[in-house]
């Protein structure tokens, strides 16, 4: 079922270090208790998929990891999330610095209304990653290559990013996120707005990104989770129901709710 991974590689990945460690995370939107007592360890150089029916809290949890929920006034987060042992909700942490380490790709491709080059260069520019134009060019090219879109856009770097097709736009957004050299890449249903061919390209890309990053992907599609991830977490009604190796979740779920979901009875 998993077309990219051989069993021995899988075993190796299991020994990866823990990148993110969440303990007893609670999220409230005003009066609504959106996420209840979530504890999970996310490993480095691994793709972790969050699955579950709509409104189960998987996106909410994802947005906690790089504190995107800070931009929502009514949102309140409790519990601890450690990134390499440091509490990201510590008062001393600047979310700006955190987000440079924890990049994010969104559901709908959202290229800025700038050129392809400027889209990718935006992050390195604000974080001051390049000392001169040549270095910046270098970073942009590397990011576009990692985004698997270099060959398609190398001749039109100055044309607007909004002029690309949906799949290209999403890969551009991934390249843009990669350009700031994050350690963790969060993806919020990155393929939901794409056609099957573009989806396949992005999935292939995600699998390659696993070499360097810890990737967390929220997805609606169980097939996608099975295809790209090594670890899967199943959320239901704000609870983390089950977390484990993808193979195990899809073949031998421990919890009856997980089983109902993956067999299509709830969702």
């Amino acid at each position: 079922m998993n077309m990219y991974d051989s069993p021995e590689r899988e075993a190796k990945l299991d020994q990866k270090a823990t990148k993110i460690s969440a303990r007893n995370v609670q999220v409230y939107y005003g009066e609504t208790h959106a996420l209840k007592d979530v504890s999970v360890d996310i490993q480095d150089k691994t793709v972790t998929a969050f699955i579950g029916p709509s409104g189960c809290g998987k996106s909410t949890f994802l947005r906690c990891i790089n504190r995107m929920n800070d931009t929502i006034d009514s949102c309140r987060v409790e519990g601890t999330i450690l990134l390499e042992g440091e509490d990201i909700y510590d008062r001393r942490v600047d979310p700006v610095q955190l987000r440079a380490k924890v990049g994010m790709v969104f559901q709908k491709p959202n290229p800025f209304p700038k050129s392809i080059y400027d889209n990718v260069a935006y992050g390195p520019r604000i974080h001051g990653l390049a000392r001169n134009k040549a270095e910046l060019d270098d970073i942009v090219e590397r990011a576009l290559r990692r985004g698997a879109i270099w060959n398609e856009v190398k001749d039109r770097l100055q044309s607007p990013g909004t002029g690309l097709s949906g799949g290209q736009q999403q890969r551009l957004c991934i390249a843009r996120a990669v350009a700031t050299e994050p350690e963790v890449l969060l993806m919020d249903e990155p393929c939901s707005a794409l056609d099957p061919i573009a989806t396949a390209q992005v999935e292939e890309l995600i699998d390659e990104l696993r070499q360097d990053y810890s990737v967390v992907i929220v997805t609606h599609s169980m097939q996608q989770a099975a295809r790209v991830s090594q670890k899967t977490a199943f959320f239901h009604l704000g609870n983390l129901v089950e977390f484990g190796d993808t193979d195990q979740i899809f073949t031998r779920p421990q919890d009856s709710r997980t089983e109902s979901y993956i067999t299509g009875r709830i969702g």
């Binding site: 990134l83 440091e86 990201i88 510590d90 001393r92 942490v93 610095q97 955190l98 440079a100 380490k101 974080h127 990653l129 970073i139 590397r142 290559r145 990692r146 698997a148 270099w150 050299e181 292939e204 890309l205 390659e208 070499q211 360097d212």
Partner: peptide, 19 residues
């Protein structure tokens, strides 16, 4: 895709700690 460029090459001064 080109995987030769590894992130270690990006010589970006990055604080080791978020704190």
């Amino acid at each position: 895709t080109d995987l030769t460029a590894s992130p270690a090459n990006a010589a970006a001064p990055r604080p080791s700690s978020l704190l």
